[in-house]
């Protein structure tokens, strides 16, 4: 191989690597630019608030998903865990809003811990374990709260639709979760371990890392974050609706993570990229709705984005 062709290949790898890491920002910039030019009323504080509020649950779910995917796993049960948390908010509302929210978060964490235990200890594949939880979790939520129940609580209502300093509460919470996950990933031992487990589980085990404990914690965290999103959605809707809350959100979340530069094979996690990926998913849906395009286009557009992202990641993986 000549020196020139080696150089060309190095350049190509760099380009791919750059695209995987920063492509999502280009995507967000492009879709924002498109809307600024072609969508009436896009540049307004009110519109930004709507997009941020609608993106918040996707961002929060995607954060948990990013951690799980970084360990080489996947969590299909996030939507069902949202439904479970919504159900428990409604069931425990009689004890006050704070108790009901705490119980809902606890239930999410427990569901995540069950996933984590089976994945980490029994060694069953994550896709199977979380698929079972996806079905059983929504089933249980529907048994507990069979039909939509209105939530008439001033505090929860304020949380769902109110703002402080001009920024909606749910957006503050999402930002707090982003900060928390960034801190975990960048500053803690746990953050380094989860990436090590995803990179090479065998090597991590051999070097004495607490692989099982790390996995258990990652899935628990993912469940708890999904529950946060469930509480957000319930507060915004002013109703607990286990039948439709979080339906298909796993797809948006996985897409956000992959588009954001975290490879499905694990070993690496991009938190900021994931947030940008979730925002991209939200803006994609919003743009198609605002331009009154058929809803089936949304699914096709989402699919196109995920295929493009996986393609970029694959090219890089091979080289």
């Amino acid at each position: 191989m000549s020196a020139a062709s080696v150089m060309a290949r190095v350049d190509r790898d760099r380009a791919r690597s750059w695209l995987q890491d920063y492509g999502v920002y280009v995507g967000v910039a492009a879709i924002v630019l498109f809307n600024v030019v072609f969508t009436p009323g896009f540049v307004s504080l009110e519109n930004f608030r709507v997009q941020a509020v609608q993106a918040a649950p996707i961002v929060v779910v995607a954060l948990g998903m990013a951690l799980v995917i970084a360990t080489g796993g996947i969590d299909l049960s996030v939507g069902a865990v949202m439904a479970l948390s919504a159900a428990f908010v409604s069931l425990y509302l009689g004890y006050g809003p704070l108790v009901s929210v705490l119980v809902a978060l606890l239930v999410g964490a427990v569901a995540g811990a069950v996933n984590g235990t089976i994945v980490a200890v029994a060694g069953v594949q994550a896709i199977i374990v979380t698929l079972a939880m996806m079905i059983a979790g929504r089933g249980l939520a529907l048994v507990l709260v069979p039909q939509l129940e209105g939530i008439r609580n001033p505090a929860l209502r304020e949380f769902g639709s109110g703002s402080v300093a001009g920024v909606p509460y749910v957006v503050w919470v999402a930002a707090l979760m982003v900060a928390l996950v960034l801190f975990l990933v960048r500053r803690t031992l746990f953050g380094r371990r989860l990436v090590a487990v995803g990179g090479n589980r065998r090597a991590a085990e051999l070097s004495g890392l607490p692989v099982r404990r790390t996995l258990l914690l990652v899935y628990t965290l993912c469940g708890a974050l999904a529950a946060v999103a469930g509480v957000m959605t319930t507060a915004r809707l002013q109703a607990s609706d286990p039948n439709s809350v979080g339906l298909l959100i796993e797809l948006s979340a996985i897409t956000a993570v992959v588009v954001g530069g975290t490879p499905l094979s694990g070993g690496r996690v991009r938190v900021a990229g994931t947030v940008a990926g979730a925002i991209l998913m939200q803006l994609l849906v919003a743009t198609l709705i605002k331009h009154n395009l058929p809803p089936s286009w949304t699914q096709m557009a989402q699919t196109a984005v995920i295929i493009a992202a996986v393609y970029v990641a694959r090219e890089r993986g091979r080289s």
């Binding site: 069950v114 089976i118 029994a122 060694g123 199977i128 079905i135 059983a136």
Partner: peptide, 14 residues
């Protein structure tokens, strides 16, 4: 399909 996830655990029961 809606088995308790526990039941799918085949080995090394902990």
């Amino acid at each position: 399909m809606q088995h308790d996830p526990q039941e799918t655990e085949p080995r090394r029961p902990r």
